[in-house]
Design a protein around this nucleic acid. Sequence first.
RNA 1: GCGGCCAUAGCUCAGCUGGCAGAGCGUCGGCUUGUGGUGCCGGAUGUCACGGGUUCGAGCCCCGUUGGUCGCCCCA
Length: 412
Amino acid sequence: MEKLQPVRGTRDLIGEDQRRHTQVIDTARRIAALYGFEEWTTPIFEDTRVFSRGLGDTSDVVSKEMYSFTDRGGDSLTLRPENTAGVCRALVSNGLAQANLPRKVFYAGPMFRYERPQKGRYRQFHQIGCEILGAAEPLADAEVIACGWHIQQALGMTEGVVLEVNTLGDAESRDAYREALVAHFSAHATALSADSQVRLAKNPLRILDSKDEGDRKIVATAPDIHPYLTASAAAFYAAVTGYLTAFAVPWRENPRIVRGLDYYSHTAFEFVTDRLGAQGTVMAGGRYDGLVEEMGGPATPSVGWAAGVERLSMLLPEAPPAPRPVAVIPVTEAQEPQALAALRLLRSAGIAAEIGYKGNMKRRMERANRIGARAAVILGEDEVAAGNAQLKDLTTGEQMLVPLAELAALLR
RNA sequence: GCGGCCAUAGCUCAGCUGGCAGAGCGUCGGCUUGUGGUGCCGGAUGUCACGGGUUCGAGCCCCGUUGGUCGCCCCA
């Protein structure tokens, strides 16, 4: 029979991998709650239009990178490639866009993109994210970034990670900037890489993050957006960065950060590291003032970010340790009832405890060691008769006789 | 969609110019019938990724496929 393997770009989370994953999500959930975010869970698949609206036709995203399928009712459905669109759709579907804004949403869960896997990049991967829906104020941008920064701090990974911030301005600023960029790159068109010559026609902003050596020289002399900002867009950017400083979040300006889609405006930011090969972005986000309208809701200015759990897991300074239970060991079968009673006692006291299902005492000791038990509670005929147990510390090897009544307190 | 590198035991890997399939770790058993982890002795484990080809003979050479990995494209 053919050996079954996980499908390309998917993987199992077991042992240390799962503990890292859990730590990232639990920590993010806890910190996000401190900032007033409530957790939402939206469906893993949606009507394809939830994701295709607003994407336009400038990229391969819709045609090549979504897991889309037709269900038995003939509807086109898509496994969610990201969760911002789903959250915006949920806001509208549940009638929440009408009142009580802004709404602050945290989410965590699997996402799916049909891509070639590489370091930190999978076909089923996991994201956490925070969105503030219905807030046009720059304080919202700064707060959502501060929350992301705080999560990374709580995970102990801010060493080597830098927050880069830029603005895309408003529509008027961006149109002017795009024109200037096209003029600059057109003047060097023949020197551009083949990829970038295509970008020049399709999505000129993307030339700014080309990895081609020759392109980079031309990019270096390309204009920044800042001279093209309208007065109000410039004021918005100044307010966001001022609030970041007030929140004590270290940041630096990177005028090369862009976004490809039209519904983005103003703030764009990325937390980047050089420790993940080609996949240097750890957490990325920005302001999207047009997306909720794309979902059929009212104009709802919003800002948020998403982060890949796999990448955050790889950056954890150390793996969370495996839990170390207490092993309860009857010396012979005759002590099994007392062993079960001790198990119950320990678990009721909130102490993780295990019992082997078979084997003599030696086997059970070996198993206790293998599962990483921190202590063994050994119940023999003599101990049981006197209401005692042997309590053995499996790290030091020290063993002492203790009354059963004191067990839980000694192991807490 | 495109390219570089890789694929031998559960894991990490060695395998000479093409000549009997190997090591360490792990695992199992024993030394030790009321004590793990450290010691000593012993055992088991392979479609050498898959399919073709060359050869007296292929883990090794050639072609293809699949998978992994690192990049490119893309990155909502």
